[in-house]
Amino acid sequence: MNALLVDDSRLARTELRHLLRAFPEVQIVGEARHAGEARALLLQTQPDLLFLDIHMPGETGFELLASLEKAPHVVFTTAYDEYALRAFEVNALDYLLKPIQENRLAAALAKAQAKVAGAATAARGAASAPEEPALPPLTEQDQVFVKDGEQCWFVRLADIRLFEINGSYTQVYFDQHRPLIPRTLQHLEQRLDPRVFFRANRQQIINLKWVERIEPWFSNSLKIHLRGGPAVEVSRQQSVRFREMLSL
């Protein structure tokens, strides 16, 4: 299992590297002091696991994750405990408080190994399974059935302004409703009309026809305000694609 360490403190990186020596199944493929270095190393090394500090010069760990189209499994390492809830909202595997305890590190690595092994098994199964016919794309005028618990809706796609990851489900925004559906954004992206629905970041797909206003955001990215809310931060890479797609 390959791991990348991202922390602006050299001492913290050294301590973590020392702790990881007790786990021979983990190979450290690089270290980064800030988000810019981390972004380059992520592309270069393609690690399975990212040990990520939150407070760093320039971008925070959360901002780095929001800018990535694809991220490895993440374990946050920080001296602050107030960001734990937000960490799990972005699907982090674990949240380790400094100074890191070896038993907590072992638990985090066990979670990571289970995820990596599961992904490898799924990939082998997908390679050997016969291909299923692709479902036809949906237009904005199509109506879709949405069920959340005992409640059901039959809603036009044109009336849905946002799809957003919420844990292992996707939350659907239309009218005043916020039902959860057992679908991934990857599945939805394959079915939706790309001229209408835009993948803003790893966690959100927006309906372009619900855009109310756009403002420049950090690191040359964009922030899009939807009618009826909420505001959505577009990743740096997708901000470039958004400008190219909608410019004359």
Score class of each variant (00 low, 15 high):
Leu68Glu: 08
Leu68Thr: 04
Leu68Arg: 05
Leu68Ile: 06
Leu68His: 08
Glu69Ser: 12
Glu69Val: 10
Glu69His: 13
Glu69Met: 14
Lys70Thr: 15
Lys70Leu: 11
Ala71Glu: 02
Pro72Gln: 01
Pro72Lys: 03
Pro72Ile: 09
Pro72His: 06
His73Leu: 12
His73Gln: 13
His73Glu: 14
Val74Cys: 05
Val74Glu: 07
Val75Trp: 02
Val75Asp: 04
Val75Thr: 07
Phe76Trp: 11
Thr78Gln: 03
Thr78Ser: 06
Thr78Pro: 06
Ala79Arg: 03
Tyr80Ala: 01
Tyr80Lys: 04
Asp81Arg: 02
Glu82Cys: 07
Glu82Asp: 12
Glu82Met: 06
Glu82Tyr: 06
Tyr83Leu: 01
Tyr83Met: 04
Tyr83Ile: 03
Ala84Thr: 05
Leu85Pro: 11
Arg86Cys: 10
Arg86Leu: 09
Arg86Tyr: 07
Ala87Asn: 00
Ala87His: 00
Glu89Ile: 05
Val90Phe: 03
Val90Met: 08
Asn91Arg: 14
Asn91Thr: 11
Ala92Val: 07
Ala92Pro: 00
Leu93Tyr: 07
Leu93Arg: 01
Leu93Glu: 04
Asp94Leu: 04
Asp94Asn: 07
Asp94Ala: 15
Tyr95Arg: 01
Leu96Cys: 06
Leu97Gly: 00
Leu97Asp: 00
Leu97Val: 02
Lys98Asp: 08
Lys98His: 08
Lys98Thr: 08
Ile100Leu: 05
Ile100Gln: 06
Ile100Trp: 03
Ile100Val: 10
Gln101Cys: 06
Gln101Met: 08
Glu102Met: 09
Glu102Thr: 14
Glu102Phe: 12
Asn103Ala: 15
Asn103Thr: 15
Asn103Asp: 13
Asn103Val: 07
Arg104Leu: 01
Arg104Tyr: 03
Arg104Asn: 04
Leu105Arg: 00
Leu105Cys: 02
Ala106Met: 02
Ala106His: 01
Ala107Gln: 14
Ala107Met: 15
Ala107Leu: 12
Ala107Gly: 15
Ala107Cys: 12
Ala107Phe: 07
Ala108Trp: 02
Leu109Asn: 05
Leu109Pro: 06
Leu109Val: 02
Leu109Lys: 00
Ala110Gly: 13
Ala112Ile: 11
Ala112Leu: 02
Gln113Cys: 09
Gln113Asn: 12
Gln113Lys: 11
Ala114Tyr: 08
Lys115Phe: 12
Lys115Ala: 14
Val116Glu: 02
Val116Leu: 06
Ala117Ser: 14
Ala117Val: 13
Ala117Met: 08
Gly118His: 10
Gly118Asn: 05
Gly118Leu: 14
Gly118Ser: 09
Ala120Lys: 06
Thr121Pro: 05
Thr121Tyr: 12
Ala122Asp: 14
Ala122Asn: 15
Ala122Pro: 08
Ala123Thr: 09
Ala123Glu: 13
Gly125Gln: 11
Gly125Tyr: 11
Gly125Trp: 10
Ala126Trp: 11
Ala126Asn: 13
Ala126Gln: 15
Ala126Asp: 09
Ser128Glu: 15
Ser128Phe: 14
Ala129Phe: 01
Pro130Arg: 08
Pro130Asp: 07
Pro130Met: 08
Glu131Pro: 14
Glu131Ser: 11
Glu131Leu: 13
Glu132Arg: 15
Glu132Leu: 15
